[in-house]
Design a protein around this nucleic acid. Sequence first.
DNA 1: TTGATATATTCCTATATGGGTATATAATCC
DNA 2: GGATTATATACCCATATAGGAATATATCAA
Lengths: 118, 118
Amino acid sequence: MARVATTTDAFNAVAEPRRRQILDVLAGGERPVTDLVTELGLAQPQVSKHLKVLREVGLVDVREQGRQRVYRLNGRPLQPIHDWVRQYERTWNERFDSLDELLEELKEKEKRDENSGE
Amino acid sequence: MARVATTTDAFNAVAEPRRRQILDVLAGGERPVTDLVTELGLAQPQVSKHLKVLREVGLVDVREQGRQRVYRLNGRPLQPIHDWVRQYERTWNERFDSLDELLEELKEKEKRDENSGE
DNA sequence: TTGATATATTCCTATATGGGTATATAATCC
DNA sequence: GGATTATATACCCATATAGGAATATATCAA
């Protein structure tokens, strides 16, 4: 098998830097494709193809307006990424003071002790 | 060109679900490869290859212990992902009450107005 | 109708990948 | 030393990219 499809989930869709750029632009408000083309300095077909991927994972919505397709950001599919990464925040952040994180720490220690006794 | 290399950054390394699984296990404390093999139910060479990718982006560190290689999580490379995704939190979260986010909102509106007048 | 503009789709190609399998390497035990 | 255990690497293969280029499709303008 090859790599997981880019359209599998937001994790994969967003791994491509161009697609993150597109979302970053759309974060500033909805845009027709041509705007994205000029702002990204990418060829039009490539932009359309990236938009297709983003559409398939639900990260953007389209609205037809004359001959233009206006794309709008929909961040919801990013939430699973946020949730997953957030669990690791304490691994790079010194301060972990909430009760929640303290409990996480304890669970970690438990598992570590279990494991070292083999 | 093909897809961006998995070893380019944490975004790409972590897009593969198996590698997220590995990190999830390592979040419970450092582990030798064999433990990961049994916990993931994956073949040993595959695990080693995934670990190599994770090593190359700095998401894990290794420590030699006899004939074992004990892998340990290093979450720091995840921070850019966290930072990027966090900017989109308001797109799925109803409550955005901080001044910071309010300013973001205003900037957004500005750009949107600029854009609609064309 | 003809032409121009906006966007999507198709075809091409090079490339990296992920799993499978076999093997290399190294440490440990007898 | 020889056997076993732990891990990494090499090789093969099917596959899905991402960009490039050309073209299809649709809408608007004159």
